[in-house]
Design a binder for these strands. Structure first.
Length: 265
DNA sequence: GCGTCGTCCTGCGCGC
DNA sequence: TGCGCGCAGGACGACG
C-alpha cells in the first residue's frame, strides 16, 4: 500500500512528465467519489509536491489537485484494468488505477485543506532537516493513544502507514502498544532515528511492492524494500535481530507485527 | 477536545 | 470447479 516511500517514488517519476504541462482534461465515471476534481482542468502544473502520503499537483491560479492513492491506487503511464480516472496532460496521459476505490482526487484552493482534515493536521515531514527528536517528542506528548495508532494518525509525523510503522517500531525496539505520551526521551530518539532510517532506505529502493495491494511505479515496475522487511508480513518467521518468532496482533483494528523479545511492553 | 469505532470497496485466499 | 465468506487497508464522520 502506498506510504511515503511509494508516493515519493511516484512523485519523482511523474514530475518530469507533468511539470510545466497543462492539464487538458480529466475523465472519470464516478462524480460522487471524484467530485470537484474537474476544477483542475485547463491549468498548467507548476510543481508536483508530496506531503505525507498525499501527492499535490500545484497548478496555476493558486489551485491544487490533491491525490491520495488510498491502499491500492497507482498513477500509471499505461492504462490498467482498474483505471478510474484519466488525466490528460499536454503530450501525456496519466491513468489513476485503483482496484479498491479507496483513493481520492480533489481540487482545492492552494493550502486550503479544510476538506482534508488529516492533511490539515499532518505532522512534520520525517525526511526534512527540521524534523527533530524534540519535535517528535512534543507531538507524541499530546496523545494518550498507543504508539501504533498515534503514528497511523499522521499527527506525530507524516507518511507512515501500516508497513513502515511496524518496521520503524521494530527498529526502535518499541512495542506498538506502548502509550505515546509515556515514552522516555531516549526512546523517542530511537523512534526518530528509526523512522528516518527506514523511510530513507525504502525511498532508495523505490518503496515496497507486496502481492496484496500490488503497488507499482508509474512505469509498472515494482519497489524492492519488501525484501528488507524485518517484521511486516513475517509472522511466524524468525526475528532478524534475535531469532525469536515474530507475532501478529491487532491494534486499532490494524494487523501489527512485533518481535516479543526485542519489543517489550 | 479527545479517543474509538464503523464505513467505504474489491480482490484474494480459504473452506466446503 | 465453483461458490460464499471474511479479511485487508487509510481516511473520515459519527458517536460517547
Amino acid at each position: 500500500m502506498p506510504e511515503l516511500p511509494e508516493v515519493e517514488t511516484v512523485r519523482r517519476m511523474l514530475a518530469p512528465v507533468v511539470v510545466g504541462r497543462r492539464l487538458l482534461g480529466l475523465e472519470h465515471d464516478d462524480p460522487a467519489r471524484y467530485r470537484g476534481a474537474e476544477g483542475a482542468a485547463g491549468r498548467r502544473v507548476r510543481a508536483l509536491r508530496r506531503r505525507g502520503k498525499y501527492l499535490i499537483f500545484a497548478l496555476e491560479g493558486r489551485l491544487e489537485l490533491i491525490v491520495h492513492l488510498g491502499m491500492s491506487g497507482s498513477l500509471r503511464l499505461d492504462e490498467g484494468t482498474h483505471t478510474r480516472v484519466r488525466l490528460e496532460f499536454e503530450g501525456a496521459t496519466v491513468f489513476f488505477n485503483d482496484p479498491r476505490r479507496f483513493g481520492r482526487l480533489r481540487a482545492v484552493p492552494a493550502g486550503d485543506y479544510r476538506a482534508l482534515p488529516t492533511l490539515a493536521r499532518m505532522g512534520p515531514e520525517p525526511l526534512d532537516r527540521g524534523f527533530t527528536a524534540r519535535a517528535l517528542a512534543a507531538r507524541l506528548a499530546r496523545t494518550s493513544r498507543v504508539l501504533k495508532t498515534a503514528l497511523l494518525s499522521q499527527e506525530p509525523v507524516a507518511g507512515l502507514g501500516n508497513i513502515y510503522a511496524d518496521e520503524a517500531l521494530w527498529k526502535a525496539r518499541l512495542h506498538p502498544a506502548r502509550i505515546a505520551n509515556a515514552l522516555a526521551f531516549e526512546e523517542v530518539q530511537r523512534l526518530h532515528r528509526a523512522v528516518r532510517g527506514v523511510l530513507r532506505r525504502a525511498v532508495d529502493l523505490g518503496g515496497s511492492t507486496l502481492g496484496d495491494g500490488a503497488y507499482t511505479r508509474p512505469d509498472g515496475e515494482p519497489g524492492y524494500f519488501q525484501i528488507e522487511h524485518a517484521v511486516y508480513g513475517r509472522a511466524g518467521e524468525a526475528c532478524p535481530r534475535c531469532g525469536r518468532t515474530i507475532e501478529r496482533l491487532v491494534l486499532g483494528g490494524r494487523s501489527t507485527h512485533v518481535c516479543p523479545r526485542c519489543q517489550r511492553r
